[in-house]
Amino acid sequence: MDREGTAGRDDGRGEGRDGPEGPTSSVTLRVNGTVHALRLDNRTTLLDALREHLDLTGAKKGCDHGQCGACTVLVGGRRVNSCLLLAVACDEPVTTVEGLARDGRLHPLQEAFVARDALQCGYCTPGQICSAVALLDEAAAGHPSHVTPPHAARAEGAADLTRDEIRERMSGNLCRCGAYPHIVDAVADAHRETVR
């Protein structure tokens, strides 16, 4: 996937320019606070840009079709499947699992996953954690979910995160080891931490 050979003059507009294997574009990615100027084949997904060009291998390639959530990262603070987002179309700041810790201290969700042993093989874990970080933000902003009947959903204020709510809101992240009960525990713990 390395496209070093196609790198060339930056035309500064992100417009296409043919390389040996296909049109390329200059792409500026802001990842975990660092700005990267890249020239990428237009076909490069954000996931491949992170893993193959920036050596950020936290986000995982599971299904590569937006079905498993292993590639979940935050773009502009929102969780997305990085395998379905073309890097050339991405111009908001990206946060990956590598960028969650602050001042040498793990993010509360990372700590909760460790404390609750919320994994077995660990392959889905970076995606689970990034997804859960956004889940807490969404709940704090009062976003509704499928399991909350509309008449029961609060018109404003934070959503009530029951176990059913956490399971529904984490449904975009599969865990083939089946560590779901502990994942729900970890998210619930982190939620209690943040609302305390």
Binding site: G69, V80, N81, S131, P144, H146, A155, R169, G172, N173
Partner: peptide, 29 residues
């Protein structure tokens, strides 16, 4: 769209339909 106050209050069918589709990651995009 699913979280929009006017959709939730006046067109709950639309909010519910959106929230019953795909995953949070996909709906964000």
């Amino acid at each position: 769209l699913a979280a929009h106050p006017l959709v939730r209050s006046r067109y709950p069918v639309l909010s519910q339909a959106l929230l019953s589709g795909a995953s949070p990651q996909l709906r964000n995009v």
